[in-house]
Simulated scan of single mutants.
Amino acid sequence: MCTQLFDPKVDYIFKNIFGSEKHPNILISFLNACIKSKSPITEVKIKNTEITKEYIEESFSRLDVLATTQNGEVINIEMQRADEKNMIKRSLYYWSKIFAGEYKVKGKYSSLPRTICINVLDFKLLEEEKFHNVYILKNKENNNMLTDVMEMHFVEIPKMKEIDQDDMLSLWTAFLNDPNNEKIVELEAKYDALHEAKIELARLSRDPKEAELYRMRENAINERRNFFLETFENGREDRDTEIVLNMLGEGLDEGMISKLTKIDIIKIKEIREKYKS
């Protein structure tokens, strides 16, 4: 009987695979595939290895991967499944916290390390066609780089349509999307790190204790998602009400308001009835 594999996009599983001290080659392979540096990463030290039960149950906790490389770079990886409408500013905030935190360790601005944030997203965020996009600090007019200490990656899983077997990041993205993908299964033997990740995922998926933690984390994530959906819906209701009342106040009829705003005319009538003086 085949084991039903856990979804590697669940942050708890992602962290156990890519942020495990027992499997550094997995993280090294992923980072080299993503960053594509002229000086490949050969060693990593994972800084946040502990995952407590409180983290698992807390819907607002972050189970990301934070590591340093032999080149002195600091790299943060976050796996995000739901679009909470704040990803870009959120990533900038995380980068700034990590970068500022390094000052406390180094004590000198000149010693601050290159800091890279990699956001792996299970939704479409950017108005870019490619599934992997990199942002750095450059001169707006002549494109000259200001510094390489800041680098931000966005890997949007849904945008990758076809697997490119010559691009390791394409393979890792396909693995995250569906570890049972026929092409991934076919190529596992060719890439040791990919094979190692699949074995570790299978091990986690067979372990009853891990299954319980996985279920708890899924529940916490669903609670978080529902919270943001409700908040978004309530915010949209407030905005719709404000728009309708303002337009009614300007003397527009219900049909015209519906045409201009795309708000259902029944909802407009309900708002008018509710707030009529």
Rank of each mutant, 00 (worst) to 15 (best):
L5H: 02
G72P: 14
Y135Q: 11
E78N: 10
Y93I: 11
K15R: 10
I56Q: 12
L252Q: 09
I46A: 04
I184Q: 01
E182L: 07
K89P: 07
Y275W: 11
D167R: 03
D192F: 14
S91Y: 05
K38A: 10
L66F: 13
G255V: 05
D166L: 12
I243R: 10
D264Y: 08
N143Q: 12
E156I: 06
I17Y: 01
N25W: 00
L204T: 02
V149S: 05
K47A: 11
T241C: 06
E102A: 07
N234E: 15
G72D: 03
R203A: 14
N181H: 11
Y93H: 14
L252N: 05
K124T: 14
E254M: 10
N143L: 14
E50G: 00
K53G: 01
Q165Y: 01
V74A: 13
M247Y: 07
L146D: 02
N119I: 01
E237M: 09
A211H: 07
D122H: 02
N16G: 12
Y214V: 01
Q80K: 08
D83C: 04
I163R: 02
F6D: 00
N139M: 08
I51T: 10
R217P: 01
W95Y: 14
P40R: 09
D7F: 00
I51V: 15
S96L: 10
M256H: 04
N48D: 12
M150K: 07
V149E: 05
K140G: 11
W95V: 04
Y93L: 15
S205A: 04
E151A: 09
V244K: 00
N48Q: 06
L126D: 13
L92I: 06
K209A: 12
K36L: 13
Y55H: 10
